[in-house]
C-alpha cells in the first residue's frame, strides 16, 4: 500500500461518476448496477448492437462469397436456375419487408416520443409483416418441393419444371443443384433470422405494453429495431442476387 500514494490514479468519491449535477435523473429503474448513468448504458447498447451486426455481416458474408464464387464458376447454370425461382413472390416479399422496416422505424419513433399506442400498433404491424413474409416463403418452398427443385435424389426429375437449357445440357444439372443448395441455405438462414426477429418483437411488444419504453430510456426497442432493419437489408441484397441476375434469359418457369 505504501507505493500506491505514488501511483497514477487519485481516488474520487463514486458519486462523481454519476452524471453531472443538474441532470437530475438519479437512479432510473432501468439503470443496471454497473453503469454510471443512462447515457453510458445506452452507448454500450448501441456499440454492442453494431458490433453484433458487424458479426452478422461477416456471417452472411461467408454465404455471399460462396454464392459469388460458384456463380462465377458456373454462370450459365446459375442464370438459368435462377429463372426457376418465383420472382412475383420474391418481389411481394421485398415489398412486405420494406413496409415492415417503415413500421419498425415508426415504433422506435413511438419510443422516442413516449407514445405507447404508437409503439404497440407499429410493433404489431411489424410482427404481422414479418409473419406474412414467412408465410409467403413457406409457399415458395412448398412449390420448390412440388417441382422437384430441392437438391436431393429427385432433383430436376420433373420435365415440366426444368428449363430447356437443362434438358439440352444435362451436365449442368449438378451446378443447378449447387445453386438451389445455396438458395435454400441463404434464404433459410435469413428466414431463421426473421423468426428470431418476430420472437424478439413479441417480447418487445409485451415490454411496451407494460409501458417500459419512455423517451429517456427505450434502448431495447431501439436495438431490436436495428436488428430488424439489418435482417431487411440482407434480403435487399439476397433478392436481386438470387432472383434477378439472369432474368433476361427469359425462360421463366415460376
Amino acid at each position: 500500500m505504501s507505493t500506491s500514494t505514488h501511483a497514477a490514479p487519485v481516488a474520487v468519491p463514486q458519486q462523481a461518476g454519476h452524471g453531472a449535477p443538474g441532470h437530475g435523473h438519479g437512479h432510473h429503474p432501468g439503470l443496471a448496477h454497473h453503469f454510471d448513468d443512462l447515457e453510458q448504458q445506452r452507448d454500450s447498447a448501441v456499440y454492442g448492437m453494431w458490433a453484433f451486426l458487424a458479426q452478422e455481416v461477416m456471417f452472411f458474408g461467408g454465404l455471399f462469397i460462396a454464392y459469388i464464387v460458384y456463380r462465377n464458376l458456373y454462370p450459365e447454370a446459375f442464370a438459368h436456375a435462377s429463372n426457376l425461382l418465383n420472382v412475383p413472390l420474391g418481389a411481394t416479399n421485398t415489398a412486405v419487408l420494406l413496409a415492415s422496416s417503415l413500421t419498425m422505424a415508426l415504433a422506435v419513433r413511438g419510443g422516442a416520443t413516449g407514445s405507447k399506442p404508437t409503439q404497440l400498433i407499429m410493433l404489431l404491424a411489424t410482427i404481422a409483416f414479418g409473419l406474412t413474409f414467412l408465410v409467403v416463403k413457406y409457399f415458395e418452398y412448398a412449390e420448390k418441393f412440388e417441382h422437384h427443385l430441392v437438391p436431393g435424389p429427385t432433383f430436376m426429375s420433373d420435365p415440366a419444371h426444368v428449363s430447356p437449357f437443362f434438358t439440352a445440357h444435362p451436365e449442368e444439372i449438378p451446378h443447378a443443384r449447387i445453386f438451389f443448395f445455396l438458395y435454400f441455405a441463404m434464404t433459410g438462414v435469413h428466414a431463421a433470422h426473421m423468426l428470431v426477429g418476430a420472437g424478439l418483437m413479441a417480447w418487445i411488444f409485451l415490454r411496451a405494453k407494460k409501458g417500459e419504453f419512455v423517451p429517456e430510456h427505450h434502448d431495447a426497442l431501439e436495438m431490436s429495431g436495428l436488428y430488424w432493419h439489418f435482417v431487411d437489408i440482407v434480403w435487399i441484397f439476397l433478392f436481386p442476387m438470387i432472383y434477378l441476375l439472369g432474368y433476361h434469359f427469359g425462360d421463366h418457369h415460376g
Binding site: 497514477a8 490514479p9 487519485v10 481516488a11 474520487v12 468519491p13 463514486q14 462523481a16 461518476g17 448496477h33 454497473h34 454510471d36
Partner: peptide, 11 residues
C-alpha cells in the same frame, strides 16, 4: 464491485 470509489486517472 471492484473499487470502493471510482478511480480518476491522471497519468
Amino acid at each position: 464491485h471492484n473499487f470502493e470509489v471510482t478511480p480518476r486517472v491522471t497519468q
